[in-house]
Simulated assay, not measured.
Amino acid sequence: MQKLEKAALEAIAGTSMMTLFSYMVSVAAKENFSEPEHLATLIHRLLPQTKKLSKVQGWTAHYLVGLVFAAVYTELWERRKLKPSALNALMLGAVSGAVAVGVWKLTFKMHPSPPWIKYNKYYAQLVPAHIVFALFATLTYRQLKAEE
């Protein structure tokens, strides 16, 4: 299996479980932490179009970002820079979460009409959400390697 195929499957698993985690935290905190919904809002406010199209674009962007993270992880594992272990998944998730917080802060700051959310709460859930992403991406990679 090619690296991109592995990364795509890792991204689907990781992004799906991360999104589920964000939805569960949203319900528990009574806040909206849905990354694809916030992306859709940002897109819709920049490019007035149907909300349905903005939602599709928000979800697409969310999974594409997951693919970028997964591709980086795959490269690290394939080059044997890191082992695909649970401990390394926690580390990758924490680093990815920190990167995501920085990107979201910059995005909200630069956007002419960002959503009205409690930013600090949103940023606080991004790190554990990315740890979930990394754990499931790692589990998927390990399963794919075991099947080779």
Rank of each mutant, 00 (worst) to 15 (best):
Y141V: 08
T60M: 06
T138W: 03
E75M: 07
L126F: 02
A11R: 05
A134Q: 10
K121H: 07
T74N: 12
R80C: 06
Q57H: 02
V101P: 00
V27L: 05
L64C: 09
L9P: 03
H44S: 08
F21Q: 14
E148K: 06
H38P: 09
E148I: 07
A70M: 06
E10A: 12
R142K: 12
E147L: 11
A7S: 15
S96C: 01
W104Y: 09
G14V: 14
P48Q: 11
K105S: 09
F69C: 03
L92C: 11
Y119F: 01
E78L: 03
T107P: 00
R80P: 02
R80K: 15
T19C: 02
H130M: 09
H111V: 13
K55M: 08
T138K: 09
E78C: 05
L76P: 07
F21G: 10
V56D: 05
Y141A: 13
S22Q: 15
L9G: 04
V68C: 00
V127Q: 03
Q143Y: 12
R142T: 14
G93V: 12
P115H: 13
H130L: 10
F108Y: 11
E75L: 10
S113V: 11
L90P: 02
G102T: 13
A70R: 11
G97Y: 01
R45K: 10
V103G: 04
A61C: 03
K109W: 07
L39V: 05
F136H: 09
L9W: 06
A129G: 13
M24L: 15
L87P: 01
E75G: 05
R80L: 04
N32Y: 00
A98W: 00
S113L: 13
T74F: 00
E35Y: 00
I131V: 15
S34G: 08
Q49S: 15
Y73E: 14
K118Q: 14
M24P: 01
I12W: 00
V127T: 14
T19A: 01
T41D: 04
A7L: 04
A146N: 11
M110C: 05
L64M: 11
P84D: 12
Y73A: 12
S16Y: 08
M1Y: 04
E78M: 04
L9K: 13
F69H: 05
M110I: 10
M24Q: 13
G93Q: 11
S16D: 10
R80F: 05
L144Q: 15
A28S: 10
L126W: 01
L47R: 08
A86Q: 12
L76M: 04
K109M: 07
I12T: 10
F21L: 13
S16W: 01
V27M: 02
P112T: 15
P128C: 04
S34W: 00
M18G: 07
A11V: 07
E31S: 08
P48D: 09
L39E: 03
V99D: 06
F21P: 08
F33S: 09
N88K: 05
